[in-house]
Design a protein around this nucleic acid. Structure first.
Length: 467
RNA sequence: GGUGGGUUGGCCGAGAGGCGAGGCAACGGACUGCAAAUCCGUGUACACGGGUUCAAAUCCCGUACCCACCUCCA
C-alpha cells in the first residue's frame, strides 16, 4: 500500500507522489514568535515531525523548511507594551520555542528561515506580481502594496470559497485598497513604528505583509513547485489561500499537497494566551515528562480536535509507562533497529501510518506488541523480536525512551551508585526477613524505602528498585 | 450570510455497511507471604427522528447542539 495523505485542497486522502522520486520537500508555517509557546503551538511541530520521520522511513530524503515569523503587528505591539525592543522580544520567544521543540524531541528543520532575513526575496516577488498585473501600490501615499484579488480568478480555490461570499476585512480603514478583500503584500512604515522595523523598498520604507514571507521563502528553499505545505487549520484562510494565490499568480506551481493539523482546545475553546500560563510547555512539563506529552499528542490523529485536560494527559502518561515498563522488564534486550525499519515494523503499524499518518491505530499496534511481549516474558520466551519492533515503532513516533534527545534524567551516575549500595544493604536485610517469614519487618523496610521515594519490586530474579 | 469540522461506553480516543481498535478506570481470576508489575476474563457505546438494506455507529433525508475560519492566529 502506498503512503496516502489527506490533501486539504482536494479534501481527500490520496496517494503521495513526490515531484522528485525519493525526495520530499515540506514547508511548515512555524510560529510568530510573539509569546511563549503553549501545547497547542507545539502540536503542529510534533505532527509534522511525525510526518517527516515517516517520509524518511518510507525512503524519502526530506527537506524540511519551517519558518519563523519575526516581524508583524503583534510583535511590535507587544514589544511596545513590555517596553522591549521588538527584536529583543522575538529573540527571547524564539529561544523558548527552540527549547519547547527540543523538550518534545521535534527534530530541527533542515533550515529555519526568518522573515526579517528574506526581505529582498519578498520585494522581488512583489515586484513580479506588480509586473504581472496582480498587485498594485496604494494610491493613498501610505506606501502599502496590495494583492489584487479580482485579478486572480481562482482566488478562493484552496478553501472553496467564492470571493463574493467573503466578508470584507473589518479593518475599517480601507486605506488604499481597490477592494476590501485585497490583502497587504507590503506595509508602508508608520511614524509611530521603530525605524528598526522597516526596510527600504521601491515604495518607500516599510515591512512585509504576513503572507508574502512564506511564498518567498518556500520558493527560495524548495523551488517553484514542492510537495507538502503544512500548518494549523486556522491558516487555511486567509494565510494559505493568499500564499497560493501570490505564488501561482507569480507563475509558480507551489505546493502539491496541503496538510493541516487540528486544534487543541481547552474548555471547548481555542487555546489562547488569555487562559493564562498553565498550558505553556514548561509548565505542562512540570506534570509529565516531555516524552509523555509527546505520546499524548501523537496518540490522537493530527486532524482530530483534542480537548486538552490534565486527566487525559495523565492517562496517556500511564499508557506510555506501560510500554516503558515492558522495555524495562525485557531489560532493553535487542538494540535500536538500524537499517531498513520497514523490515522490523509490524505490517499493521506500517499500514496505519501509510493511511494518512494513522497514529492512533499505530499506537494500538504498539500496545498489542507490548502485550504479546509481556505474555512471552511471563512464559519465559525470548522477546528480542518484540523489543526491536516496539523500539522501532517508538522511534517512528519520536517517543523512544532511550532516545538521547530526552537527555539525562537528571540523575548523576555517581549518586545512583551510592544509592544502589545503600538500598542493596536494606534489600539484603529484607531478604533475610523474608526468608525468616518476618513479614512485618520485610514490609517495614519496603515502606521506609517507599517513604524515601524508592519503589521496591520483587521479581523472580530478585528485588529491583526504582525512583 | 459563506466555508469547513464535530457529537462514540464511567473517562480518553479510533473506526466508516456485517466480526467490540487501543489506553485509563472498575470488577473477577492467575501469579505473589502481602503488594507492585504482568497475564487471562468481564461491556451489547456510537446526539435525536425517520428512511435504505438480509444487515447501519458507518449510507440517505431531516432535527438539535458544539467548534473553527471569513484577511492578527498552531
Amino acid at each position: 500500500m502506498p503512503l496516502r495523505l489527506h490533501d486539504t485542497a482536494t479534501r481527500e486522502v490520496r496517494d503521495f507522489v513526490p515531484l522528485r522520486p525519493g525526495h520530499a520537500g515540506i514547508y511548515l508555517c512555524g510560529l510568530t514568535v510573539q509569546s511563549a509557546p503553549h501545547v497547542g503551538h507545539v502540536r503542529s511541530g510534533v505532527c509534522f515531525d511525525v510526518l517527516r520521520r515517516w517520509l524518511g522511513v518510507r525512503g524519502h530524503t526530506v527537506t524540511f523548511i519551517r519558518n519563523v515569523t519575526d516581524i508583524d503587528d503583534k510583535i511590535l505591539a507587544k514589544g511596545a507594551e513590555q517596553d522591549l525592543e521588538w527584536w529583543a522580544l522575538t529573540a527571547v520567544n524564539k529561544r523558548l520555542l527552540d527549547e519547547a521543540y527540543a523538550l518534545l524531541n521535534v527534530l530541527p528543520p533542515t533550515y529555519e528561515p526568518a522573515a526579517t532575513g528574506h526581505v529582498p526575496e519578498m520585494l522581488e516577488l512583489i515586484g513580479l506580481l506588480i509586473e504581472r498585473g496582480h498587485a498594485y501600490p496604494a494610491t493613498d501615499g501610505s506606501g502599502d502594496v496590495y494583492f489584487d484579488v479580482a485579478s486572480w480568478p481562482s482566488y478562493g480555490e484552496l478553501t472553496r470559497q467564492r470571493v463574493e461570499d467573503m466578508e470584507a476585512a473589518e479593518d475599517a480603514d480601507p486605506r488604499g485598497k481597490r477592494d476590501p478583500r485585497d490583502f497587504a503584500l507590503w506595509k508602508g512604515a508608520k511614524a509611530s513604528e521603530p525605524r528598526t522595523a522597516s526596510w527600504p523598498s521601491p515604495w518607500g520604507r516599510g515591512r512585509p505583509g504576513w503572507h508574502i514571507e512564506c511564498s518567498a521563502m518556500a520558493g527560495k528553499y524548495l523551488g517553484d513547485a514542492f510537495d507538502i505545505h503544512g500548518g494549523g487549520v486556522d491558516l487555511r484562510f486567509p494565510h494559505h489561500e493568499n500564499e497560493q494565490a501570490q505564488s501561482r499568480a507569480a507563475g509558480q506551481d507551489f505546493a502539491s499537497y496541503w496538510m493541516h493539523n487540528a486544534w487543541i482546545t481547552t474548555s471547548g475553546e481555542k487555546m489562547s494566551k488569555s487562559l493564562g500560563n498553565s498550558l505553556l510547555v514548561p509548565n505542562v512539563l512540570e506534570r509529565v515528562r516531555g516524552v509523555e506529552l509527546r505520546y499524548y499528542l501523537v496518540a490522537s490523529h493530527y486532524r482530530s480536535h483534542v480537548e486538552f485536560s490534565f486527566e487525559a494527559l495523565e492517562e496517556a502518561a500511564a499508557a506510555y509507562r506501560r510500554i516503558e515498563g515492558f522495555l524495562e522488564r525485557a531489560d532493553r534486550g535487542g538494540a535500536a533497529a538500524t537499517g531498513d525499519l520497514l523490515e522490523v515494523l509490524p505490517a499493521a503499524f506500517v499500514d496505519a501510518m501509510d493511511d494518512d499518518l494513522g497514529t492512533p491505530a499505530a499506537v494500538a499496534v504498539l500496545h498489542d506488541t507490548v502485550r504479546e511481549g509481556n505474555r512471552r516474558l511471563d512464559a519465559g520466551d525470548d522477546v528480542a523480536a518484540q523489543v526491536t519492533a516496539v523500539r522501532a515503532m517508538l522511534g517512528v513516533l519520536g517517543v523512544d525512551p532511550d532516545d538521547p534527545a530526552w537527555g539525562s534524567t537528571g540523575t548523576d551516575d555517581h549518586l545512583v551508585g551510592v544509592v544502589d549500595a545503600l538500598v542493596r544493604g536494606l534489600l539484603d536485610e529484607r531478604a533475610q526477613a523474608r526468608a525468616d517469614k518476618d513479614w512485618a519487618r520485610a514490609d517495614e523496610i519496603r515502606d521506609r524505602l517507599k517513604a524515601a521515594g524508592v519503589e521496591i519490586t520483587d521479581t523472580p530474579d530478585g528485588p529491583t528498585w526504582s525512583t
